[in-house]
């Protein structure tokens, strides 16, 4: 069994987001970068499926060399080997093109991504890859079992859950509930140091989008406090001042 897991590297969740150069650039000063939390789930699930049958799990990142600590973390969690496609990830379509071009002739049984990357929140790579590779794409999955040439998958749908079966190969995106992320142990960390990390040059891709500028949400005007003894006052304000309830 051969599995590919795509990972992105994102600002730690406690990061206060600010921008530079007239709000045209994300300010990375002092920001700690981590493996995207949903990708940890994807990798853990891939390992849970591939390890018992002696399969391999390749972790793939599209990005620059500064992502290598996060890639080593993925290797220490148990990935067999890693590939870094040496290009700044400019948007979801660029990333998907790179991954598809790498994966198309490698015979992966399935590919997992995270549900979304918590920086640009595209949630798009899974579907893009599915179409580029002409395989089924199943997003926001919460369970995955592979047996023979079929996968049984549970996924979130709007207002519920659904169980689907899919033939292999397929691509799916990991949602919370799929599993608990694996924590690397000492042996894993040692082993990761010498695991192969291949650097592959990108293919040339036409960029369909360009980030022009960023904006922070409007700060609140200040909070209006209401006495705990008078909750009817809150209801009154919500109805008649804010007009958000009937």
């Amino acid at each position: 069994m051969k599995v590919l897991v795509c990972m992105s590297v994102v600002p730690d969740t406690t990061t206060k987001i600010t921008f530079n150069n007239n709000n045209t650039e994300f300010n990375t000063a002092g920001v700690q970068f981590i493996m995207n939390p949903y990708d940890e789930l994807a990798l853990t699930k891939a390992l849970d499926i591939a390890d018992p049958v002696g399969g391999t799990v390749t972790i793939l990142h599209v990005g620059l060399a500064d992502a290598e600590p996060a890639i080593r973390k993925a290797l220490s969690m148990g990935a067999t080997d890693a590939v870094r496609i040496n290009a700044a990830a400019t948007d979801a379509q660029f990333v998907a093109e790179q991954v598809a071009s790498y994966a198309k002739d490698k015979g992966f049984d399935f590919i997992l991504t995270g549900r979304e990357s918590i920086d640009y929140n595209g949630g798009a790579v899974c579907g893009l890859l599915g179409a580029m590779l002409d395989i089924p794409s199943i997003n926001v999955i919460t369970q995955l079992e592979v047996s023979g040439n079929t996968a049984t998958i549970e996924r979130d749908i709007d207002g519920g859950r659904e169980t689907v079966s899919s033939s292999l190969p397929f691509v799916a995106s990991a949602q919370k509930d799929l599993c608990e992320p694996r924590i690397p142990n000492m042996r894993g960390i040692m082993a990761a140091r010498t695991k192969p990390l291949a650097v592959v040059e990108p293919i040339s891709v036409t960029n369909h989008s360009s980030y022009q500028r960023f904006e922070l949400p409007q700060p609140k005007q200040g909070v209006r406090m209401i006495s705990a003894d008078a909750p009817e006052e809150l209801i009154n304000l919500l109805r008649n001042e804010a007009k958000v309830i009937n």
Partner: peptide, 16 residues
Amino acid sequence: RGVFSGKAFAYVGLNA
């Protein structure tokens, strides 16, 4: 579009 999980917004030009 919303970015950084609701912590900010981005203005993206679509050229295709």
